[in-house]
Design a protein around this nucleic acid. Sequence first.
RNA 1: GCCGAGGUAGCUCAGUUGGCAGAGCACAGCCCUGAAAAGGCUGGUGUCGACAGUUCGAUUCUGUCCCUCGGCA
Length: 341
Amino acid sequence: MKIQSLPITHPPSLITDKKPLLVLVGPTAVGKSDIAVHVAASLGTEVLTADSRQVYRGMDIGMDKPSLDQRRGVPHRLIDLVNPDQPFNAGMFRRHAIEEIERLHRERKLPLVVGGTGLYVRTLVRGLCDAPQADPEFRAMILREAHEKGGCFLYERLTCVDPESASRLHPHDEVKILRALEVHHLLGRPLSEVHRDHEFGEMPFVSCVIGLIRGREALYRRIEDRVELQLAKGLVVETERLLAQGYRRDLGSMKGLGYRQIAGYLAGEYDYAEAVRRLKRDTRRFAKRQLTWFRKEPGLTWLSIEDHESSEQVAERILIQIEAFLATLADDRQGAEELAS
RNA sequence: GCCGAGGUAGCUCAGUUGGCAGAGCACAGCCCUGAAAAGGCUGGUGUCGACAGUUCGAUUCUGUCCCUCGGCA
C-alpha cells in the first residue's frame, strides 16, 4: 500500500534525499505575519520572510515589518539584509534563503517560509534558472543608447538576438526586455533558451504550499485599515527621513508602496488626501496581482479565512494541514525504505 | 411658492441635428525565471430620473410629475 502511494514522478531514492519546506503565501494584508508567528511557535521553528521589501534596512513602517512585540520571541530571518540603495533581487534572496533553510534542517527544525513575493517563493519551491546576475553597467549603457536612438530600439534589438523572448514580451515592457538583452549580452545565449532548460522544474525540497485568502471586500477593508495604521505610525516621517538620508525616489526600494505615494506628496505633486487615496488604490491593485500569481502556482492549497476567525484559529487549521503533509512524507519515506530493503 | 441650472456607468461628466451611448477615475481579468510591493497587457460594467404623447423608431423632441443644486421670496 505504501509503495502504491508513491507518485511515479518521484523515485524512492529522491524522496529520502529531499527535505521538507513549509510555505505560507497570500496577498498583502491578509494576515500572514500574525498567523505565521503562531504556526512557527507551535512548531518550535523560525519564520523565513519571503518579501522583496522587508529586506531593506530602515524601511519599517512602509514595508510593514512585524514589530518585536508581534514576533513574540519567534526569530524572523531574511529581513534587513541590505540598505535601500543596495541591489537586491530574486537570486540573492534564493541564496540567503537556502542558507537559512539548510541551517534549520541541520538543527532539525522545519523551515517555514512566509511571504507575498511570488517570484521569491517560486525560486525556493521550483528553483531558479542558471542565468547571470543583473549588470547595472550594461543596463545604464544600453538605456543611454536607447534614449539616443529612441523608438522601439530595445525591442527591435531583442527581436534580432532573441526572437523567442521578444515574441513573449510586449514592446512596452522595458524592464523584461532589458533583462533579456542583458542575459544575451553576458552569456552569449538567449534567455529563452536558458528558461527552456530550466522550466521551473528544480524542486530542491518537498514543499507544502498553503495560500491564505479572504473575501475580496474583507481584504480591501483590511488594506485600508492597514494603510491608516501605517500613516498613524509615522509613514510620512519615515519617508522624509529616508529622503533626507539621500535615498532618491528613483531607487527600486523607494518605489515600493507607501514611499512612492508619500514622496510624491512631499514633492508637492498632489495633496495628502490624494497620496492616501493612491496608496490605498495601489495596494489593492498589488493584492490583485499577487492573487493572479498565486492562483496558477502548482500544488498550492488555498485556505480561506473567515472574518470572525482569530489568527490562532487559522494557525490551528494550518497546523492540521501541516501534520497531514508530514504524515504523507513519513509514509513515503517508510515505503522507500521497504522498497530499498 | 417663483426663477434659473441639472438628473446618462460605482463616481465626475461628455454626447447623440431622433437609429439600443463614451471618456477619466474606480473596478475586473491576465502576463511574468536576478527591478517582482517592480514592469507590462486586455476589458465597459448602463431601465440615459418616472410616466404619457409625437414618430417606423425617443436617452435625444413635447407635456406632466419626481428629485438635486443655486438665486429670490
